[in-house]
Amino acid sequence: MNAPIIKCHNLSHSYSGKAALSNISFICESGEPIGLVGPNGAGKSTLLNILCGFMRSASGNVTLFGHKPGASALSGRVSALPQDARLDPAFSIGEQLCFYARLQGLNTQQAKHETSRVLEAVALKDVLKEKPSVLSHGMAKRAAIAQALMGKPELILLDEPTAGLDPVNMRKIRTIITELSPVTTFIISSHDLAELGRLCQQMLLLDKGVMSTMQLNASENNKPTRFLTLQMESCPAPDVQAKFNNVAGISRVSNPQKNEFIIEYNPEIQPSMDLKIITCINDNNWQYRQLSQGKTLEEKLFFDGM
């Protein structure tokens, strides 16, 4: 078991009497990236702001590596990408990142080297001497991600890291997170569930200020039935559902979205259900786009049990 890096106990916060967080308690251990999901206004940014020390909780306790958020002892150990934060327009991007590195304890030479390294990592080395005003929204986001990567932080809190990025840069950020994961724990707040599904095995789900945790793999392996998610090309949904329902071992077929089917089956009756499904598709001359194990993250988090 890894050491806990975040401990929250009965954390509550409200804005003008409206609860944003209600008695949240959880522990995060170092290791794989952790996703923080929830609908708009669920309290994700509030929680990240409290963890970063940007705001104080109304009640409850929270510690990061045993220290209160915002403590000097966390300088260089905890890093963050705050939502909508922008760099100072008076200074060049290089000057500011260099300054941040100096504040983290690096000397001038190390700070310059580190600035080049992180800007290169987010494909922004060309804008080292530019002012933030020349950056597009996506570039400014990458510059903000660059500052979060400075030094060797043990914990990086990312609030919507890929919002506004193009697919190439989304993949770049995903690669950075994957590469750093063995030494750095990421907590990623995002609405992009496909992105989170690729990166995280553990999810923190916030809804109306209440938190629940989910281990994505564990939750499926422990159940007597399994799921397949099938995305078809244009097809007659009632026919598809009817045909699949006749396959031995399938207990339920749902059609939550256009051309998407979730198939629930018993693995003891039919262990190779994926092959059966492909055969059925082939026999009926249908075209499919994707067949994947389990439910989509969206289904698991927001529609399970509905």
């Binding site: 970063c52 940007f54 966390l74 705050p82 922008r86 760099l87 100072d88 983290q104």
Partner: peptide
Amino acid sequence: RGTLRFLCVR
């Protein structure tokens, strides 16, 4: 602007 957030994590 949010720049203080970049500073206050350090």
